[in-house]
């Protein structure tokens, strides 16, 4: 399998085999340090919208492989303010860098960037659409903590309506014969189009608003934040923001080997009292961003 010069834009572009190959490469990256693998290669990080962990973890991954960095962390400093098109910005940057990571508030921006650039583009989030490297590190985490990806009972909790990570993860996990449990207040449940897709693929799923009704069945519980910025009406947000607060009172109602994930940042969905339990894997999950992003950088630059 060869990923040289390929773009990483959407989880929809990847087959099961390709995803497994990327996870395998990430595992190699975790086992062996390759401090000179990307020597003399330059990564441009174009963050038109703020992000802490994604940007830092790409930068750290590139540094650990011996590569160099350039870029910006906010659109304020760029010619975008002067009215430059994204196409022109990318055309300029492709002359300076070997690989480009982009986060942009508009949906489809990464796809356009890939069409403009002859250098590989990695999507680090395009509006509410895709964030494929997050999905890949989520898969990597599940594979690592459960020893497999197939036939798992997976609960997704929180904002399932607007949550980009949830939608991509459901798409990716659909390759592995899961049973899904969508746990959310009715107004924030999984959009019908996704449920229809699952039906077409003959994948079993259940919806619930009460976590305790399904918690005993779960192998993985993926918790998401209810995001204030997604609500047009602040009153609506107030209604839902505190609906789920996981704490140690949950412990009698779950499997011993349930693992709790969260893409972070958390607000109050998971009480810190759960952090010390074996169930909490969210910090490990964040750390897994490094081997996965190392693997992707090395793959698209043709170095593994």
């Amino acid at each position: 399998m060869n990923f040289e010069k390929q773009d990483i834009i959407s989880i929809h572009d990847f087959s099961k085999q390709e995803l497994l190959f990327i996870l395998k490469t990430a595992k190699l990256m975790e086992k062996k340090l390759n401090p000179n693998l990307l020597k003399d290669k330059i990564l441009a990080t174009l963050f038109f919208e703020p992000s802490t962990r994604t940007r830092l973890s790409f930068m750290s991954a590139m540094e650990q492989l011996g590569g160099k960095l350039m870029g910006f962390a906010t659109a304020k400093m760029t010619s975008i303010k002067k009215g430059e098109t994204l196409w022109d910005t990318i055309k300029m940057v492709e002359a300076y860098a070997d690989v480009i990571v982009i986060r942009h508030p508009l949906e489809g921006s990464a796809r356009l960037a890939a069409e403009a650039s002859s250098k590989p583009i990695i999507n680090a989030g395009d509006g509410a659409n895709q964030h494929p490297t997050q999905t890949m590190l989520d898969l990597y985490t599940i594979q690592k903590v459960k020893g497999k990806l197939d036939n798992l009972h997976i609960g997704l909790l929180g904002d399932l309506k607007y949550g980009r990570t949830v939608h991509s993860l459901v798409t990716a996990l659909s390759h592995f014969n899961p049973i899904f449990y969508f746990i959310a207040p009715q107004a924030l449940q999984m959009p019908q189009t996704y449920l229809d897709e699952l039906k077409e693929k003959k994948i079993k799923f259940f919806t619930a608003s009460n976590l305790l009704k399904v918690s005993k069945k779960l192998d993985i519980l993926y918790v998401t934040r209810i995001q204030k910025e997604r609500f047009a009406d602040p009153v609506e947000y107030e209604k839902y923001k505190g609906v789920y607060k996981l704490d140690t009172s949950l412990l009698p109602n779950i499997k011993k080997d349930l693992k709790i994930m969260h893409p972070l940042p958390r607000v109050n969905e998971i009480d810190p009292s759960l952090d010390a339990t074996d169930h909490a894997v969210y910090f490990e999950q964040a750390a897994n961003g490094i081997p996965v992003r190392k693997a992707l950088l090395a793959l698209v630059l043709g170095k593994v």
Partner: peptide, 9 residues
């Protein structure tokens, strides 16, 4: 989708 790049670029 008003937030699509095609409606902004």
């Amino acid at each position: 989708n008003p937030n699509c790049i095609t409606n902004n670029e």
